[in-house]
Amino acid sequence: MDHTLFKAITDSRQRITLATIIDVKGSSPRHAGTKMLVGYDGTRTGTIGGGKSEARTLDACRQSRESGRSLLLETKMLGDGTASTEMICGGTHRVLIEAAVDPEPYRQALALHGQGKRLVFVKRLVGTPNETLDAVETSLIDAEGGILCGPAGSIDLERVARALQSGAPSFDTVNGLYYEPLLPEEKLLLLGSGHVGQAVARTAASAGFRVTVIDDRPEIIDAARFDATIRTVVAPYEQAIAEFAFDAATYVVIVTRGHHLDLQCLRAILTRDYRYAGIMGSRRKTRILIEQAITDGFDPEKIDALCTPIGLDIGAESPEELAIAIVAEMIAFRRNARILPALQHARKARRPAPAVN
């Protein structure tokens, strides 16, 4: 859920146009669910990928704003070869352009999201597909299938459940219904604020994660070292972890100053819910930590899922390079990237087998 865009919708005092990619076939610069707000004066918040596609969308937003009618715009990126003047990404995408966005569903979504609620927007496109639409009707659905606002109509509750499970939007072309899940805000719990920790905090924040950095050394975790959007906590690791609100959208990166502290953090998080957890260190160090976790009797599936050594293998060495490798792996989890099964299989193959009593 893009809190910045949604808050801009609810706070706006002018008429705004919302462009959302609702369907992608083949290759496209951005995925379904990507949004761009265009103000009455032409100012933009967000991007749907730039280039000719965005220019065409901006022109359609202007037309929509002037006519007061919503549109469904299809852009083909099937140009043939480098000499072509058309885009050559290799796919098509459809963009829903809403002429006048009702802020009320977004206001409700933000309030409920702040309480950790999982929600789904359902937008009904009324009119002839690929032409000017008669209306766009927005409904807000909770995780139990309850209609919080908007019409119920022909909403498919199985699609609602699948959207919440997969985290991915979908477009029912037959019924003209677009389903978009609104999952809890992605949070990074960063355990350790040394050189790598500081670099990871900056990189993760720029990628849209809400970052909390924990360290037990006041002189190292000076808030002045971090951007104002990054929360810093000075406390013993085990205490801070116990007080942190974990959920299925939590990412954990362990980069403390010593293996004994890494082990404390690992033991503390293995009993909690999270989306991703990784530990920085050499293969020997992380192997020793994994062996101890196995000996301690923690859930084998959670141990197998740990990203150790942490980050994508891009040959990173400097703190900034390591931060890129680590956040890139987090993004792979965010997007359910196709490389994940191969990564986890390779890591599991290197793990020690449980000791036989």
Rank of each mutant, 00 (worst) to 15 (best):
A325Q: 05
D222F: 09
A223T: 15
G192W: 05
K35A: 03
R62G: 15
G194C: 08
R94C: 02
G49T: 05
L289R: 06
L37V: 04
L266D: 02
L263G: 00
R15W: 05
D247E: 06
H259S: 09
R225N: 14
S53E: 15
S53A: 14
A305R: 13
Y251C: 06
E320W: 05
L289P: 09
I48K: 00
R231M: 12
G51P: 01
E321Q: 13
E219Q: 15
G49W: 01
V213S: 06
C89W: 10
I331H: 01
I48A: 05
G194R: 00
T271E: 10
A163M: 05
L289T: 10
S28I: 01
G90N: 07
I254E: 02
R13K: 13
I147K: 06
E74S: 11
I147R: 02
S12D: 09
A199F: 06
I331L: 08
D59E: 13
I141L: 07
D313A: 14
G146M: 00
Q108M: 14
A305S: 14
P354I: 01
A328I: 12
T128Q: 15
V174C: 10
G315C: 10
S70Y: 00
A207W: 09
V126P: 11
V327F: 02
V211A: 12
E180C: 08
A135P: 07
D23Y: 13
T20M: 07
I147V: 07
V213W: 11
A277M: 10
